[in-house]
């Protein structure tokens, strides 16, 4: 991978990591978006959209209520595409998704560390903050962004490092790579079924709407 490509992937990884919760939340952190753009950066859009679709199925599980913990699928998706890019057909998808899930999970842990650091930062300045000192409040707030940017950049760097190692020494044979892809898709699809069930349970007439959707979707597939 060229240095320029690595630079753009790091930049994009940092941006999607920040979008997860800290800055804007315009959902460029969704795997569907993060992976597609990463695919475009590495010059393999097709792999980007497939990896993005599989990881999006996983991410549909996340309902970030309150201060819930959830994986950083955005940076995970960027790492997954960096791993899978260039592999023909289905061969890179499973391995890419595996790397993506590991990075997403590490991202979840890193978010907790960042929040702990911010908590300590805020505790140290409790008196000034409670007295309404706008400079202290603003600086503590902005340090939160810097901390999360460092987390996202570090995570994206680690993801690219893992991707490079995996690409240099693929852990499976061609047959194993296809089976790995099938397993990744299976877990993603099962997760989506459960997400649909969870949403249907809490929505008025949700079961009927979910069933109607399944019928329409199946009919669509059959007709095509």
């Amino acid at each position: 991978m060229e240095l320029t490509t690595i630079g753009w992937l790091l930049l994009w990884g940092t941006a999607v990591g920040l979008d997860l919760a800290t800055v804007a939340q315009v959902m460029v952190a969704r795997p569907l978006v993060a992976a597609s753009v990463a695919g475009w950066i590495v010059g393999d859009v097709q792999t980007g959209i497939i990896v993005g679709a599989v990881l999006e199925l996983f991410a549909l599980e996340v309902l970030p209520f309150g201060a819930a913990r959830y994986p950083d699928y955005g940076v995970g998706a960027v790492s997954a595409v960096a791993t899978a890019a260039g592999a023909p057909g289905m061969l890179g998808i499973g391995v890419g998704v595996a790397v993506g899930l590991v990075v997403a999970y590490l991202g979840e842990i890193a978010i907790q560390l960042v929040r702990q650091q911010t908590t300590m930062d805020v505790k140290r300045r409790r008196e000034a903050i409670d007295s309404g000192d706008v400079h202290t409040i603003t600086r503590a707030h902005l340090r939160g962004i810097r901390r999360d940017a460092q987390r996202a950049l570090g995570l994206a760097g680690l993801g690219l490092l893992i991707a490079t190692v995996v690409r240099a020494a693929p852990p499976v044979t061609v047959r194993g790579a296809v089976l790995l892809s099938a397993v990744a898709m299976g877990v993603g699809l099962g997760t989506t079924v459960l997400s649909g069930v969870r949403i249907a349970r809490h929505a008025r007439g949700g079961w009927v709407w979910l069933a109607a959707g399944l019928v329409v979707g199946t009919a669509w597939v059959v007709v095509q």
Binding site: I50, A53, V54, L57, L60, G89, M90, A182, M185, L189, T192, V193, S195, G196, I199, A200, H202, A203, R204, G205, G206, W207, W209, L210, A211, A212, G213, L214, V215, V216, G217, T218, W220, V221, Q224
Partner: peptide
């Protein structure tokens, strides 16, 4: 909620078919 349930319902078979066609 109903729209989300409907759309996920449509997406499951459509995406499953698309992903596994290879």
């Amino acid at each position: 909620g109903p729209v989300a349930a409907l759309m996920i319902g449509v997406a499951i078979p459509v995406v499953a078919e698309w992903l596994t066609e290879g």
